[in-house]
Design a binder for these strands. Structure first.
Lengths: 141, 141
DNA sequence: ATAGAAATGAGAATCTTAAGCATCAGGCGG
DNA sequence: CCGCCTGATGCTTAAGATTCTCATTTCTAT
């Protein structure tokens, strides 16, 4: 229930926050821009301001409820933080986003950071390619 | 010589282009924002518009002369393409950028893409941490 | 040198995101 | 259950980054 997540995060339970959380939870793609969330809310008849969407997402991020991802392009993408760290693979054609986790890579990253004299805090790995899904507009090309 | 690179890239040899290429070649950090390049040109007495810097960098990118990197934050960072692919490790405190290449990671990436049914075209890996350099503002923290 | 095409500079425009501020709503005391 | 207080919201405006427009200038080939 959204209410619980919000309270746990120390955020007052308000309609906009619940709705946004709900959209993030129910999203098919699980990776949404602020704009996309905003439009979805408008479409479903909610009265909400884009500023609120950004504000709430930023608060969610600070609270650890969502992650803000910077893929190529200019818009940030938000995803609900479901616990496990993972990296991303994105189709250049259809925009599909998939998640993966590879312990070998994770390990090598830690090792590399150490070798370079860094205390690693975070990392971002994104693979870009063309997916071979039958719905992909450029399948097989 | 900058002239050669420009001609090879099929770009008309102009003063702004040569100057920008030169700055990219001689830069200590090797990772510059458009703004930084612009300011450096202004400081050295050149008359140039910010729009030109962006335009030229975009052309350079299209020509394969430079790469545009999207680290955290909103500004893109440009680096001269010296041939070899590499990934980046960035200090959260001092902004230092270092490059690395790890064949194990590269291999795993190809493997993962294949397993997920993607024809991989590109990837971006950035490690964020705190460097232990003596000049780093938060050394040892 | 000269014309034609392409490049530049300055400023306006655009896009994304973050304020500022007046109004509204959720949570608590009565 | 009602009303207040503080924080939340919505709208508008702003700020930062990048692109576009267009008149003017610069290359390159002749």
């Amino acid at each position: 229930m959204e209410t619980q997540n919000l309270k746990k995060a120390g955020l007052k339970v308000t309609l906009p926050r619940m709705k946004i959380l709900q959209i993030l939870e129910e999203s098919e793609t699980r990776h949404l821009t602020a704009e996309a969330i905003y439009r979805e809310l408008l479409d479903s008849g909610e009265e909400i301001g884009l500023a609120t969407v950004y504000r709430v997402l930023t608060q969610f991020e600070a609270a650890g409820l969502v992650s803000r991802l910077h893929f190529e392009g200019n818009q940030a993408v938000f995803e609900l933080d479901r616990g496990g760290h993972h990296d991303h693979i994105i189709c250049n054609q259809c925009g599909r986003v998939e998640e993966f986790l590879d312990e070998t890579i994770e390990q090598r990253q830690r090792q590399i950071a150490k070798e370079h004299g860094y205390r690693i805090k975070d990392h971002a790995l994104v693979l870009y390619g063309d997916c071979l899904d039958e719905d992909c507009p450029r399948r097989g090309n």
